[in-house]
Write a protein that binds this DNA or RNA. Structure first.
Length: 643
RNA sequence: GCCCUUAUAGCUCAGUGGUAGAGCAACCGCCUUGUAAGCGGUAGGUCGUGGGUUCAAAUCCUACUGGGGGCACCA
């Protein structure tokens, strides 16, 4: 006699086991029509599922966010049926719903191409129109394996074989077609609707392992209605407009070319942006008690062997040799071993700890070609790297200090939302379990002291120690992992770093590896996308353009530009023989934050007409006032007078 | 590295077997101009590179290199 409790608190009793469909019909025809699935005691399931005992029930309609996931998952099934109908030799594997859509991985000797999309989409619409009910069946394991093997579906058979013994093998049918699937699903294929679109094909390794065969993955996006779909497609276009590679080209910030793959040619404007950020970081570091150092680019392999990097990362290092000398050197892929060399140069006292050693370390890594991505993933980059040599007792305090500094920097740079992840020991690692226990516990404790709340990220630590990962969210909601703090008890041991303690004995320091930006290249890529190239004044590559209206005003325009330059601003004078409309347009398109327009009147009165990017308003003010105000406004946030 | 895709003028792109095109930018001239494109003219490309098919290749095939989207990788 199940009693069904509904979200409004009301209870309905039934004489015997009932399906969700029956309950919905009992409540009313409107709900019966709208209910796509249901949640029974918090668990999402098919609406046709039978409820045997008392339960809390909530119906899922198109309005509920859960419906999107179901629509997407079902769209993947519809895609798979369509593909097998058109290309019967294709084997199916898996097809989950993902953010904004779904994908399905197929195995086929000839991979699909976007040219096949039109035919596949047409078939999908046919299947949706047929309104085939999704019917759940539970099969015996052996029957299921035999069934799929008989059909030549080796991948599916393998999946079933690998399911845990006690797992129920459920099959979903939609008309003639069926698939192994945990569910749940909508009522019929019709519920998928027509707001879907196939987006791209991509290769993906079977079970995510590069030793396995390559499958063809077809990605699609799916929404509740056409309006949502269009909004999503529009958003994709908007994101494309802020792509840092596009903006970098438009604003003349940097370029890449074949002769230096994965390395940036910074142009004058991009370099101003870069150095503005670097200057800021240098000030922040100095303020927080770091000393800056500089270490060699080319270092003998012996050091990398000692640190353990040679063993693990040799194939990702650029190796250099000299003809006349039988030596192998490597371009440094990281700075830590070099910093240890400075630390161990001469005797260190406990009085020097914590010793915070920073370097804008230029590193090179031979990243796989497929990993390269604009500024975000390059082969030559510069880290805002630092290593804190300290005692175990100082870990907590240093963590507190670092987290504070990191938040201040992110805030100055315009990022408010920061998450923390705790990455613990990976499978392949250096150091004993005892050392790892110690390092992980120390870091956890430090988090507690610093009041840092974190998510767990299992197995993702560095090979020498656990790490905190700082993830920031940008203006359009994307997450970027930038900052990191790593506790390392291994490298000081391997590279024999020591200090003399209070007891006159030798001790091992702890090394904290830390970065806030990560790499300048990547962080600038993020900054470009964050601001869509419209930087705050202190970062803008060209801060002000002084544009003359008539040639008579040209000398005054030059004078205004000179005054601003004297005040430390990046300014250009545009005295070309062109219409003011054209000049304003050109510099607006170039995202110059401030345009000062000067004509005959301004020259006579010694004023400027100020126009801000993104507005049409003009403000007339005296030259002196303009210089004072712009100089103040262009001051980096950390140098601005507070309050 | 693997799969798909792509490469034409400085930029954005059209041209799909029959003598390389447009817009913007550049350069030259005219216009002295009041807040998002004034007008006219000139110049600019061995169509990414190497092979091949063909009477004929930007166009078809093939390899390589770079770019893009994923997968794998990310000390």
């Amino acid at each position: 006699m199940p009693a069904i409790t509904l979200p409004d608190g009301s209870v309905r009793s039934f004489d015997g086991p009932v399906t969700g469909t029956t309950v919905a019909e009992a409540i009313g025809p409107g709900l019966a029509k709208a209910a796509l699935a249901m949640e029974v005691d918090g668990k999402l399931c098919d609406i046709r599922q039978t409820i045997h005992k008392d339960a809390a029930l909530r119906f899922i309609t198109r309005k509920d966010p859960e419906s999107l996931e179901l629509i997407r998952h079902d769209a993947a099934h519809v895609l798979a049926e369509a593909v097998q109908a058109l290309y019967p030799e294709t084997q199916v594997t898996i097809g989950p719903s993902i953010e904004n859509g779904f994908y399905y991985d197929f195995y086929r000797s000839e991979p699909f191409s976007p040219e096949d999309f039109a035919a596949i989409e047409a078939k999908m619409h046919e299947i949706v129109a047929k309104a085939e009910p999704f019917v759940r069946e539970v099969w015996k394991r052996d029957d299921a394996i035999r069934f799929f093997e008989d059909r030549g579906e080796k991948f599916k058979a393998e999946l079933i074989r690998d399911l845990p013994e006690d797992e129920e093998i459920s099959i979903y049918r939609q008309g003639e077609w069926l698939d192994l699937c945990r569910g749940p699903h909508l009522r019929t294929t019709k519920d998928v609707g027509n707001a879907f679109k196939l987006m791209k094909v991509a290769g993906a390794y079977w079970r995510g392992d590069h030793r396995n065969p390559m499958l063809t993955r077809v990605y699609g996006t799916a929404w509740r209605d056409k309006k949502e779909l269009d909004a999503h497609l529009h958003q994709l276009e908007e994101a494309e407009k802020r792509d840092h590679r596009r903006i970098g080209k438009e604003m003349g910030l940097f370029h890449f070319q074949e002769e230096a793959v994965g390395q940036v040619f910074w142009h004058a404007k991009g370099w101003r942006l870069y150095t503005a950020l670097q200057d800021y970081m240098r000030r922040a570091q100095t303020r927080h008690g770091y000393q800056e150092v500089r270490t060699p680019q080319l270092v003998d392999r012996a050091l990398w062997e000692a640190s353990g990097h040679w063993d693990k990362y040799r194939h990702h290092m650029f190796i250099a040799t000299v003809e006349d000398e039988n030596k192998t050197l490597a371009l440094k892929p990281m700075n830590c071993p070099c910093h240890v060399q400075i630390f161990r140069h001469g005797l260190r006292s406990y009085r020097e700890l914590p010793l915070r050693m920073a370097e804008f370390g230029a590193c090179h890594r031979y990243e796989p070609s497929g990993a390269l991505h604009g500024l975000m993933r390059v082969r030559g980059f510069t880290q805002d790297d630092a290593h804190i040599f300290c005692t175990e007792d100082q870990i907590a305090d240093e963590t507190v200090r670092f987290v504070k500094m990191l938040h201040a920097v992110y805030q100055d740079l315009g990022f408010e939302h920061v998450r923390v992840k705790f990455a613990d020991r990976p499978e392949q690692r250096a150091g004993s379990d005892a050392v790892w226990d110690k390092a992980e516990n120390a870091l956890k404790e430090a988090c507690a002291v610093a009041g840092v709340e974190y998510e767990h990220n299992p197995g993702e630590g560095a090979f020498y120690g656990p790490k905190l990962e700082f993830v920031l969210r940008d203006a359009i909601g994307r997450d970027w992992q930038c900052g990191t703090l790593q506790v390392d008890l291994v490298l000081p041991e391997r590279l024999d770093a020591s200090y003399i303690g209070e007891d006159s004995g030798k001790h091992r320091p702890v090394m904290l590896h830390r970065a806030i930006l990560g790499s300048f290249e990547r962080f600038l890529g993020i900054l470009i996308e964050q601001h869509a190239g419209r930087f705050p004044l202190w970062l803008a590559p060209v801060q002000v353009v002084v544009a003359s209206i008539v040639s008579d005003a040209a000398p005054y325009a030059e004078e205004v530009a000179a005054a601003l330059r004297e005040a430390g601003l990046a300014v250009e004078a545009d005295v070309r023989n062109d219409k003011i409309n054209a000049k304003v347009r050109e510099h607006s398109v170039a995202r110059v934050p401030v345009i000062l327009v000067v004509g005959r009147r301004e020259a006579e009165e010694r004023t400027v007409a100020m126009r801000r990017l993104g507005t049409q308003a003009q403000e007339s003010l005296s030259l002196e006032e303009a210089v004072t105000r712009l100089k103040n406004e262009a001051t980096p946030p950390d140098l601005r007078k507070k309050g």
